[in-house]
Structure formats: C-alpha cells, structure tokens
Write a protein that binds this DNA or RNA. Structure first.
Length: 476
DNA sequence: ATGTAC
C-alpha cells in the first residue's frame, strides 16, 4: 500500500490504490506512528470504507486508529444522507460508548486518607463486569420510555438535573421515532443492565487536574489545579450490543438487496433513507440514549457515595463537566464544495469536536469539549474543538490513546500481577474484579496518548485546555 | 465491546 505524506501530520492513500475506492483515504498521525500502523489491518480497513456508496471527501482516521470490526476504530466516515448509507460496523458494537467527566470542589490532598475507602464503596455499589446486574429495576414499558427520552427520563426520575443536560452532547437525547428495529432480546438485556459499567476498557477513575493550559478559560469553566475529578467510561452494554448484532446480521442480506458490493462483511450497510436504514438509525439512537442514562445513573450513585464523606472533607459540589459519545453515527449539516449538505457522520472511536462558533449553549464561543482518556495509569486530556476541525475531519477528533496490542497479545505478554504492582508503586490504586483482564488494558497495550494529542492539537482540530492524572482506577 | 460460541 502506498502511503503519501502530505505534511508532518497528514497522510493519504490514493483512490487509485484499489479500483473500488470512491474517494481517497486520509489519516492524521505522527511520523513515529507509521511503522506500527502498517502492522495491523487498520489502513486496509480505512481504504475498504472508501468503497461504500455516498461517501463524501475522504475515508478518515484519527491518530488513535487501530483495527476494528469492518471499519477501523478511530475512523470517521461521512455519507450523503440522500444517496449514502448507514452501517452498524461504522458505529461499533458498543453504541454510544462514551466518556463523562465530573468535577468536584475537593482537592487531592483533602481526600488522601479516605481515597481507599471511597474506592471500596464505589467498587461495592456499582455493578462491574459482564452480567452483574443493574442499579435500578424498571419494567418494559418504563424501559421503552427511558431509551426514547434519554436524559429527560433521568431528569423526570430524579437522577439528573436540567443543568447537567446542558453539559451532555445533544443534551443526552437523540431522536427515536419508533423502536420497530429493537428486538425483545435487546430490551431484556437492557433492562437487566441499566446502570452498570461492563468490562474491557470500561472504567471509573478518580483523578486530579495536574495542569491547566489556558488558565483564564479553565477557571471560568470551574477547573482548578489538584482538583479531584471522576471519569466514567462505558456505553450501552448488552442493549447496544444486541442491536448491533441484530442489524449486522440482517444487513448481510439487506446490502445485497440494494446491490451494494461489500469487500468485507463488517461493512454491511443499508441506504440511510431506506426502511432498513431508518430502522437501524432509530434503534442506534435508542441505544445512545440508554448509554447517556447509564453514565448518568453511575455518576449519580458516585455522587451519593462521595456525599457520605462530606463531613471528612467539606460539603461536596459534584458537577458535570461534559459527557460525550465516541461511537455513533449523527445526521449533521456540513459544507461540502461550498454547499450545505446533510451527512450521516459515522464516528467509531472518534469524538465530535465542533469549533467555538458552530455550537450553542454552555460551550458556545469556547468550542466543544473533547475528553481524551489516556490508557490506565497515564494522563488524560481535556481539549476543545478548534478552527480546522470541520474542514479536516467533519468536526471530529481522537477519543483516546488507541490500541497497539490486540487483547490476546496483551494478555499473553503482560503479567497482570506485576502490572498492578507497578501502577501501585506510582501511587495509583487499582481495584478490579478480574485481575487477568487488567493486562488487556495495560499502558503497553496502547499508543502514547501524548503523541495522539500532539497530532490533533498541531492540526488545530482541537486545542489543549487541561491535563489530568489518575489517583484510582475501578474496573470490571 | 459482549449473558466473552449459531
């Protein structure tokens, strides 16, 4: 495969590479990442996406790109809403896998003595791992309301506030016209897991603000140095997983029906405006609503736990900084060749990063927050959508460090006991129900988050706001 | 990612 370097951080693969490609592939990366990128199928997958009907501009990827199911993770693909497709493989199995950052008014010194106890309380209160139950019990009728109304359901039921809603991407509610595409099986799995973390790379982290790059803006947004924060990384659990499975299977024949040639079964898709396309779209949106509520319920529970320690620290303020989706397809208006166009923007392991003047609400004139969690034990970043993001990536940035080792490779090469010990030597508390799965999330299994962030900031897709470090990590 | 295999 011929990779053309356009400048320091922009690389392209020509559409001549493969006769089925409709547009070139383009990825944003650091020169030091290129050799590693050639080792898995991620670039091949990136060119495969360029063969799908209605793709606009480029098949794109962020510097945290790695191999996924059909579409690469870290990929961004925009399709013409009238003539293009929607694909479950372009979103991923964990629909609205996303990340949330809550701020407290406590500093890290104040919680030193009670941190271990807080970690135990969280560990014992939130269902962690696969199939470990839910935080609330609701019936099918109520569940259907929950996935249709998203955060509005959480507000009605006392789990969220109007203020929090303003700090959630799309206000925590994506349009669901009907649930015709949602199987009973998906609903059963969802009911039993609402308010649960899951496993894999999902985590709860207690961290602190270590550096604020724009001091005035940081202060205006409620950040201060050494501030204790809570990260929650999870998604739509078995509900989204079942929806993705159902459609990935059904779409094998649906793609054929519409005469779409697939170079990989993971690219299965339907025309966005078709009956099948719309069914997936609303089902996917309902899973996104599930995930927004899921993270909200977990955050609400953690707030209750922290409040119990108020007497030992000081009265708690627990505020949502931002909650976002990094596995989702969104119907958005973009300028294509000087004209407004409705596009279905698939972000699979990519974060929306609209610049200051294109967003409304709390972050208008500031830029959309881009939360970039590093791998376990490493730094994380708060970035803000910046001026080149629409032009370079349909308003998208990176979502994390990105894997360099497959789960199985990491498991066979990294001793989880030694890993836990080395993280604890650095002063980070690690609490997990599955020591063996820790290896899969080892820092060595991931790219360097600093390099990833350097690329998107240099391209002015985003700009840096703050850097954060971990104090404790709780995992399934 | 996942009641971690239709």
């Amino acid at each position: 495969m011929k990779i053309n370097q356009i400048n320091d951080f922009i690389y392209e693969i020509s559409s001549e590479e493969n006769k089925n490609m409709l547009v070139p592939a383009r990825f944003y990366a650091h020169p030091s990442q290129i050799e590693t990128l050639k080792k898995d199928d991620s670039l091949k997958q990136l060119t495969n996406v360029a063969t799908l009907p209605g793709i606009v501009g480029y098949s794109l990827a962020m510097p945290d790109i790695h191999q996924g199911y059909g579409f690469p993770i870290g990929g961004v693909a925009a399709f013409d809403a009238d003539e293009g497709i929607i694909s479950p493989g372009g979103v991923g199995y964990d629909i609205n896998c996303g990340i949330r950052l809550n701020l407290t008014n406590w500093n890290k010194v104040e919680i030193q003595k009670i941190l271990g106890s807080i970690v135990n309380d969280i560990y014992n209160s939130i269902p962690l791992g696969a199939g470990k139950g839910s935080l609330i019990k609701i019936n099918k009728n109520e569940f259907e309301k929950l996935v249709t109304e998203g955060i509005d359901w959480a507000i009605k039921n006392g789990f969220a506030t109007e203020k929090e809603k303003e700090h959630i991407e799309d206000k925590g509610k994506l349009i669901v016209k009907d649930l015709n595409g949602v199987s009973d099986k998906a609903i059963e799995r969802g009911i039993s897991e609402i308010g649960s973390l899951g496993s894999g790379n999902h985590f709860i982290e207690i961290g602190y603000v270590s550096e604020i790059f724009d001091k005035e803006l940081g202060s205006n947004l409620g950040l201060f140095k050494n501030q204790v924060v809570v990260w929650i990384h999870t998604g739509s659990r078995g509900y989204g997983h079942q929806i993705c499975s159902d459609f990935a299977k059904e779409y094998q024949t649906v793609s054929k029906k519409y005469g779409i040639q697939l170079v990989d079964r993971g690219l299965a898709c339907a025309p966005f405006k078709s009956k099948e396309g719309q069914e997936y779209y609303y089902s996917m949106n309902s899973a996104a609503n599930f995930a927004f509520v899921n993270r909200q319920l977990i955050a609400h529970k953690i707030m209750e736990i922290l409040e119990n320690y108020s007497k030992k620290v000081k009265p708690l303020k627990f505020e949502l900084f931002y909650d976002l989706a990094h596995n989702i397809a969104k119907l958005e208006t973009h300028i294509v060749k000087g004209k407004k166009k409705q596009l279905v923007v698939h972000r699979k392991g990519a974060t929306r990063s609209f610049p200051a003047k294109y967003i409304k609400g709390e972050f208008a004139n500031i830029g959309q927050p881009v939360l970039v969690p590093g791998s376990m034990g490493t730094s994380s970043y708060i970035l803000l959508g910046s001026e080149n993001s629409l032009e370079l990536s349909f308003g998208s940035s990176c979502h994390g460090a990105g894997r360099v080792k497959s789960r199985s490779q990491a498991k066979s090469e990294i001793d989880p006991r030694k890993l836990k010990e080395s993280l604890e030597r650095e002063g980070i508390i690690i609490k997990t129900s599955s020591l063996s799965s820790l290896s899969e999330e080892a820092p060595d299994a991931y790219k360097d988050v600093e390099t990833v962030v350097e690329v998107v900031n240099n391209l002015r897709i985003t700009k840096p706001l703050a850097k954060l470090k971990p104090l404790a990590v709780i995992k399934g």
